[in-house]
């Protein structure tokens, strides 16, 4: 049991949609747990990461905490995968890159519709935002990219089973899409 590959997953600046897509493999998840052991992941609610064979990163890098978590994953995972549009190129959150951070924060916390007690939060517990949202390969080395919003359950299944089997990974045409 102990020599099963260990897999960790996390969502940075994403919507957890890629994690939902992973759950969409349905009953194949039973096969998956035969193949791997989950380490830190929202699926198990384990909060700290150990040495892992595979790390799946959903979401782009939008704040200081994202950077810290991403670096931690890179340190602990032999293979790191950008899962989904946001991890691959920033995705929807990167649309805020059309505006300055000041514009974004003022819209949300100062001048926007329905704002009460206007003021930009300054609690040290809240991670500071980067001036732009970045894909994860701008911060750490990434070994594989799985595009899609989200990548389909079949895409994730193809990837995981072929990678774990040590095969070259080949996707059918319909499994690679950017939307």
């Amino acid at each position: 049991m102990t020599d099963k590959p260990r897999v960790a997953t996390t969502s940075l600046c994403g919507c957890f949609g890629c994690h939902m897509s992973l759950l969409d493999i349905d009953e194949r998840i039973l096969q998956l747990v035969q193949l791997v052991r989950f380490d830190r992941t929202p699926l198990t609610d384990i909060k700290t990461i150990g040495e892992c064979d595979l790390g799946l990163i959903e979401g782009g890098v939008a704040n200081a905490e994202n950077v810290e978590v991403l670096r931690e994953f890179r340190r602990h995972c032999k293979v790191l995968v950008a899962v989904g549009a946001c991890a691959v190129n920033g995705g929807i959150p990167a649309m805020r890159n059309q505006f300055t951070l000041k514009e974004c924060l003022e819209e949300s916390y100062v001048g926007g519709v329905g704002v009460h007690n206007p003021g930009i939060p300054n609690d040290p517990e809240i991670p500071l935002l980067l001036n732009q949202v970045h894909p994860i390969h701008e911060v750490v080395k990434v070994d594989y990219f799985l595009p899609g919003c989200p990548p389909s359950a079949d895409t994730l299944w193809t990837f995981l089973t072929e990678l774990l089997a040590g095969q070259p990974i080949a996707f059918p045409y319909t499994q690679i899409h950017y939307d």
Binding site: L101, K102, I120, N122, L128, N131
Partner: peptide, 14 residues
């Protein structure tokens, strides 16, 4: 990376 936080630091006064 740290430079990319400068704007947020200034806005939050942190």
């Amino acid at each position: 990376l740290d430079g990319a936080l400068a704007e947020a630091r200034a806005l939050a006064g942190r």
